[in-house]
Structure formats: structure tokens, C-alpha cells
């Protein structure tokens, strides 16, 4: 028998195995906590802080990595939490090249969708004037890399290194110059990339998109 802990999430009681994250526990109750860096297909890393929740301690906690504790009372959608998320979205949108390649083609940019959900129409912040706009890397035959649309969520890096084990992608640079990189920071098309497309598939923004869609605007997707 595994040990369990009991807690409440938005006032609903739940009992989960020790080690379960708050995000997973909430999901088992049907509560959706917004994410950017987290994906159920990958190891949680907790880098974006979109999924923060209020556990009653001084700092909001990133629910995708924070394990549940006995007796915790978690609030996933309090005003404090929502304010925090709005601030985060504004910061991310400050230098975002909206609408970006994902929104313009398949319309499923996760950052812009969250901005809409949280009523963030524009950012009060501006990209620092001194920073040169991040470049577009057009070197791959299948994927376009728009570094300006990258929010450094690391999904692509985990997709490349941990799902596909191609070990091509990493982060490079520091501070505002931090960016995703291929091999030792060469253009994607010149790297050891095998074009499996996993990075593009997991990217939540317009940073990594399929070239085949550029120039198209998919109005609606019917499923059968």
C-alpha cells in the first residue's frame, strides 16, 4: 500500500499518493490549472510559474512541481493568484511578436490563449531598447525558429533530449540574451538535428513552427 496525504484544493477534499504534485491532484478533481512549461508528456521542471497556486505560505507555489502535503489548503484561482498570472503574462508579452507564427497559422498559441483568458490585452512593459530583436533562424528545411517568440519554457529541450533522446537542444547565453540553442549554438539546419519535429510539436508559442503551414491560416479544424 502506498502512503497517501489528504488535502483540500479549492475547498474540495482529496487524498493522493505521497509525492503527487498539486497540479496532478487538482486535475484528478477536474480542476484545470493553466500551464506554459508543463506538459503531461514530460518531466515537470517548474520554470515558467504560470501554474502558481496559493497554499497559504508567503510565496505562491508552482503547482506542477510542488508535491502535496498533509492538511494543505490550496487555492488555484484566488485573486492573488490571478493577479500574479496576469503580471506574468504581461511580462512575457512585452517583447512577444504577436500574433506570431503559431497564432497566425493554426491559431493555437498557448500564451496568447492564456492572455485572452486573463483579459491581458497589452503589456505595460517594453522590451529594453538596447536589446537587438532576437533573430529568426530559417535554416531548417522543416521548422522555422523565431527566437523572439520563445518564452524559455524548455519544453522543446525536454522534447528533444528526454522524449526523443536526440540530445540536440539546450539553453545558451545568460540574462536577457538567454536563448534555446542547437548543438553548440549553430543554426538549426546545420546542427545534428534529425528533424523529428518533437520540439515544434511541444512548443506552446510561435517560436517553433512547421514551415508547411506558413502562409496559411487554418480557420477551423473539424474532427470526425
Amino acid at each position: 500500500m502506498t502512503d497517501t496525504v489528504s488535502l483540500t484544493i479549492d475547498d474540495q477534499a482529496v487524498e493522493v499518493p505521497v509525492g503527487t504534485t498539486i497540479w496532478d491532484a487538482a486535475r484528478s478533481l477536474g480542476i484545470d490549472i493553466p500551464v506554459l512549461c508543463h506538459s503531461t508528456r514530460m518531466r515537470p521542471v517548474g520554470v515558467c510559474r504560470m501554474c502558481v497556486v496559493d497554499t497559504g505560505v508567503r510565496n505562491l507555489q508552482a503547482s506542477c512541481v510542488r508535491p502535496c502535503e498533509e492538511g494543505m489548503a490550496v487555492y488555484t484561482d484566488s485573486e492573488k493568484v490571478r493577479r500574479n498570472r496576469r503580471m506574468l503574462l504581461e511580462l512575457l508579452l512585452a517583447d512577444y511578436p504577436a500574433p506570431g507564427n503559431r497564432e497566425a497559422t493554426t491559431g493555437d498559441d498557448e500564451l496568447l490563449a492564456l492572455a485572452r483568458d486573463y483579459g491581458v490585452e497589452h503589456s505595460r512593459f517594453q522590451a529594453s531598447a538596447s536589446a537587438a530583436p532576437a533573430p529568426v533562424d530559417d535554416s531548417s528545411p522543416v521548422i522555422v525558429v523565431d527566437h523572439a517568440a520563445c518564452i524559455l519554457c524548455d519544453r522543446c529541450i525536454r522534447g528533444c533530449d528526454e522524449l526523443q533522446h536526440n540530445d540536440v537542444m539546450t539553453r545558451s547565453g545568460k540574462g536577457a540574451a538567454t536563448h534555446i540553442a542547437f548543438d553548440l549554438d549553430v543554426p538549426m539546419g546545420e546542427s545534428t538535428c534529425v528533424a523529428c519535429g518533437e520540439c515544434q510539436a511541444v512548443c506552446p508559442t510561435g517560436a517553433l513552427t512547421n514551415r508547411s503551414l506558413h502562409g496559411l491560416h487554418v480557420l477551423a479544424e473539424d474532427r470526425e
Partner: peptide, 9 residues
Amino acid sequence: AIDVKARVV
């Protein structure tokens, strides 16, 4: 951009 109606199969 060219507008397309898509179906997912």
C-alpha cells in the same frame, strides 16, 4: 495568408 478550412483525420 490563404484561408483554409481544415479537417483533422
